[in-house]
Amino acid sequence: MPAPGSRGPDIAFKWVAMFAAAMIVVLIVMVGWELYYGSRLAIAKFGAGFLWSSEWDPVLERFGALPFIFGTLVSSLIALLIAVPLGVATALFLTELAPLKMRQPIIIAIEMLAAVPSVIFGLWGIFVLIPWLRDSLFVWLKRFLGFLPLFQGPIYGLSMLAAGIIIAIMILPIVTSISREILRSVPNLQREAAYALGATRWEVLKIAVLSYARRGLFGAAVLGLGRALGETMAVTMVIGNRPQISASLFAPGYTLASVVANEFTEATTDLYQSALFEIGLVLFAVAILVNAAAQVMLKSMSGSGPVKVN
């Protein structure tokens, strides 16, 4: 029999556990509040115009976030355009094609890729990737696709496109592994039914697997976007860090995360620092929204097995 009064420690233990779990929710609110608190000067001074102004002049203390929002969106979009097809294709290869013995080593390699720190990608980007891009890929793109405004203008190396490529490499592991989970949840019956109709392997993938998994794969892409938006160090090292809006992908750019990383410790005035906090607030809000959307999408996918006949 428990001794009288032993309920005390029991209740205390439960409260400690509850407090720790509640911390998570408190943390989200606290992060939002702190960022808001830090940016109140800038919010009071610039209002909503902060988001639409493309001027970033620390000397005259005129601040607008548009170049950074633009840079973040464009670099993340490039990353998604590269990483989603590659990631889904690799996931298809791993779940549908690869011999069983080959799967594990490739999966481990992809997990290791996910473990490489951002700053190491940045270092590799500066000294290995950028010189190669500048001398080969960019020159080639300019020669053959130079009629597009995207691939015009001088080639520096440090550029929006380089940042997009680095982010793509960094989000590939998560896009691949989530896509793999999704594809694995496609019932085998789907595949067998298609094979029984005489479909070739590609037709099975197209008719039975991909169309079934479409929603989940979209969720994987959104999760990848969430990661791409917040990538900081590697991007800071290869994007060129210039607050400008340019049609050319060869031109340097700047992102929300990298302007904070670069200028925060140099922000000498209160308003300057406050503007950087507002940049952080924008980044946080977008990241929370995108991640929440991805979670909702992936959850609705994994639960019921929606067999759509259309």
Partner: peptide, 10 residues
């Protein structure tokens, strides 16, 4: 999914 730089600011 919160970008790590945000933790630094907070």
């Amino acid at each position: 999914g919160v970008p790590s730089i945000v933790w630094g600011m907070v």
